[in-house]
Nucleic acid binder design. Structure first.
Lengths: 205, 205
DNA sequence: TTGGAATTTTTCCATCTGGTCAAATGCTAC
DNA sequence: GTAGCATTTGACCAGATGGAAAAATTCCAA
């Protein structure tokens, strides 16, 4: 049996490092992040960092691996036995809440993917694709039953990802355009997205 | 009179450099881009680059400044005298075409904004905000006239940006999930986005 | 053709950065 | 208390990178 048990002390230090690394990676991307920056954010020396994670890459991988589950949770929770419109409304709500609560995680992934996902390509065509295909099958079923407008399920998921993560990844732009960084922007966003996705722009006459 | 005229030769070389720089900046972000990489992509020596642009930053600024106009064109073209639904449908079409034709430009901006827009903050709260506010006024007018569902205009614009630029910025993810890099994804995307934005997911009964 | 300006390259440098090493310190079981 | 292990750090290194200098080459007008 491999010893996967780590002392609580070690686990706590690793968590502190990963939290600092998340800050720095989200703000500067993998290449832009420096070990000095992460060490300083974690309140320790650079060699001490490398005592816990042998390389910068290892830190990055640990972050991505550890966060992927949480990141995909909202989609996992899409319930095939639920009412389609309400399920999607709830999914949008969960995903937007995720962007609000975990903006660093969102920007970590965004940085990685915008630059061609050099370090997580396999995850995209593996877990991620599998999950989307599974959920797309549910959406297709709903569409066939006439309980959902006939859209491409994968692209619908893309649209929900794009609009919700926008409030994390492009937050500085959103705040600049709105001329405000009041948290209320998330409420307005949710209201707008619900109307858009559920009933669209055409006035119901 | 300041001499803003540059020889055609110089202009051509500058254009060649900026094209190479766009490649590299889009792929690696500002920090990740190297002068060696840009020089190599432009087919010239590094010091020769610096003969035309004194610093890496200057190249980056030249790119952002030069591309902002093109980038905002689709929104500029929103016509207050047009039919609201058709205007927005056309805007979505233009913006998606932009993402398809100019993915590098989209990723250049995405890289910059995800990392906090350290070099274009003023543009965001200047030109960009002004343009959005101007167009939001048009949308508000349409909403007051009952020709558009009552959504927050700025957030509607955000949603259109997010969904269309997604096909440039997150292209590797889109292709990985779809398991295809066929150009047809843009057609499917357009069809899906039109249905979503115009009529929403709720089946018309 | 030729002189001077524009362009290009070779060489070089200072700094930053990921990572190593050995020494020092702290912690815990006995 | 102390032996032995875990943790932490200061000093250091090699390669990458942004940029400077100056020489070499090309181009063009007269």
């Amino acid at each position: 049996m491999t010893n996967t048990e780590r002392s609580p002390r070690r686990a706590a230090t690793e968590a502190r490092i990963l939290d600092a690394a998340l800050d720095v990676f989200a703000d500067h991307g993998f290449r832009g992040a420096t070990l000095d920056g992460i060490a300083s954010a974690a309140g320790m020396s650079k060699p001490n960092l490398l005592y816990y994670f042998a390389t910068k890459e290892e830190m990055h991988v640990a972050l991505l691996d550890g966060l992927m589950d949480t990141w995909l949770d909202p989609l996992e929770a899409l319930d095939p036995t639920g009412e389609p419109i309400e399920e999607l409304r709830a999914y949008i709500r969960r995903k937007l809440a995720m962007a609000q609560r975990y903006p660093r995680e969102s920007r970590l992934f965004a940085n990685e993917i915008v630059q061609g996902a050099p370090r997580i390509a396999s995850m995209l065509s593996g877990r991620l694709r599998a999950l989307v295909q599974a959920k797309a099958a549910i959406l297709d079923e709903w569409i066939m039953q006439g309980r959902l407008a006939p859209v491409d399920p994968a692209h619908l998921i893309f649209a929900i990802w794009a609009t919700t993560q926008h409030y994390a990844d492009f937050d500085v732009q959103v705040c600049a355009v709105l001329d405000s960084d009041d948290d209320a922007r998330f409420d307005t966003a949710l209201a707008t997205l619900e109307i858009l996705f559920i009933d669209g722009l055409r006035p119901r006459g």
